[in-house]
Amino acid sequence: MTFSPELEAKLEKLMNSYPPGRKKSALIPMLMFTQDEVGSITPELVEEVARRIGIPTVQVDEVVTYYSMLHRKPMGKHHVQVCTNISCLLWDGDELYEHACKKLGIGHKEVTADGEFSLEEVECMGACSWAPAIQVNYDFHHHVTKEKLDEIIDSLKKLR
């Protein structure tokens, strides 16, 4: 498998940022970067990553099935992650998640028909001080209200 020149450059830098004998450390970032370009963690991608890092594919599967941020099916262009863990829950994160479901018309780990949005109920993202928090792709949004969520989604819709 080959990736875009930009991604290849990024991966090369990644592989060189760990001390000798620690190539395995590159596994999680490599999966995330490549998932962004490929769209999801396909079986071919698992093999490619295993080959590049020099480990059996089953060890890549272990990581892919462990982390919820790694998806084996493609998610939407904008992947909306709403935290409902304890701090966010105290600030009505659960209602925020329900609202997001209605707004997008989809549920947990589902994708809108046009492929633009997907939704995921996630555990703590380390943004408790600014609860309730959501994350869209790699961007965090803090103190999110229903109105603010609508705004964020509407502005993303306009982007296309």
């Binding site: 089953v58 060890q59 599967d61 272990e62 099935t65 462990y66």
Partner: peptide
């Protein structure tokens, strides 16, 4: 399997109570 045999055919997938041993 990994260290003794040098084969690495087994792994653990999922997490928590959903965790299972998986073949390669």
């Amino acid at each position: 399997c990994n260290e003794g045999m040098g084969v690495g055919a087994l792994g653990i997938i999922n997490r928590g109570e959903q965790s299972l041993i998986t073949p390669n």
